[in-house]
Amino acid sequence: MDFLRPASWEEALAAKAEHPTAVPIAGGTDVMVEINFDHRRPEYLLDLNRIGDLTEWEIGEESVRLGASVPYTKIMENLRAELPGLALASHTVASPQIRNRGGVGGNLGTASPAGDAHPALLAAGGEVEVESAARGTRLIPIDEFYKGVKRNALEPDELIRAVHVKKADGPQQYSKVGTRNAMVIAVCAFGLALHPESRTVRTGIGSAAPTPVRAKAAEEFLNAALEEGGFWDNGKIITPSVAKQFADLCSASCNPIDDVRGTASYRRHAVGVMARRTLTWTWESYRGTRRTTEGAA
C-alpha cells in the first residue's frame, strides 16, 4: 500500500490520473472501516485532508457550492437556512465524532444506497462537480449520479470536488428510520423539498432501492394535485386522501430488499409514513410562512 499526500487539488488530480485505482480518503469514515476490518487493501490511498478548499463552501445566488469534505457538523451549524434538508440529514449521520470528519463527498464517492445525504440532495436538486486532470471539470446532475449499488457516475481518473446544491426556496424535511435513536445506519430514509418558485415538489428515498431514488410518480401526482386544487395560492391544508396517495406512490417507487436491518415490506411501509409526515410538516411550514408574509403585507 502507498499513501499519497497531495498538497493541492492539482496534485491530487495528477495522482489520481497516474494511479486510477487510488482510493481517495478524506474523513476516512468509510475507507478506514474497510481497512480495519480487512475488507479492502487498496494499492494507493489518496489523502485529501491537506486540500483546504475542499472544506470550504460558497453561498451563491442559486445554489451553495459545498466542498466535498465540508464536515456534516459544519453543514448543520452553518447551512441550516440555505440547505435545511441537508442540514437535517447531516444531523442524522452516525455520531458527533463521525459528523466532525465525514462530508458529502464521501457519501457520493461511496454511493451506498444508505448514505444519509442522498435523499436530501435528490430532493433539493443539484449537481456534483467532478474533475480529472485530462478532461477538466464536469457537472453531473444529481439525478444522473447514482448508477447502481455502490456505483456512481465517476470515471476512474476523476475526483469529486464539490456539490452544488440548490438553495431552498421553500420548506424541506428529512426523516430516517433506524432501529436505534442515534448512531444508526438507515433502514430507510426520506427527503422532501417544496419548491414554491417552480411550484414543484421533489423527493429522495434512501436505502429502499439499489440506489438512492426519487419517487417521481409521487412527485408528478402531487404536483398535479397541488396545481389543480390551487393549493400553492390558497394555502389550504392538503387533504388526507392526497397525502395518502402521495405516500402510497412513494412506497410504490421503492424496490427494497430484506436484510439484517429490516424487511422489504417494512421499508416500503415506512417510506410511506415518512412521506406523509414530511409532506405534512413542510406544507404546514409553507402555509405558516404564507400567513406570516401575508400578515406582514
Binding site: 437535517l88 444531523h91 430516517k176 428510520v177 435513536n181 409526515r277
Partner: peptide, 11 residues
C-alpha cells in the same frame, strides 16, 4: 421515538 432521525414530531 426515532431520536435524531426526525421521524415523528408526536404523530
Amino acid at each position: 421515538p426515532g431520536g435524531l432521525s426526525n421521524t415523528t414530531h408526536g404523530e
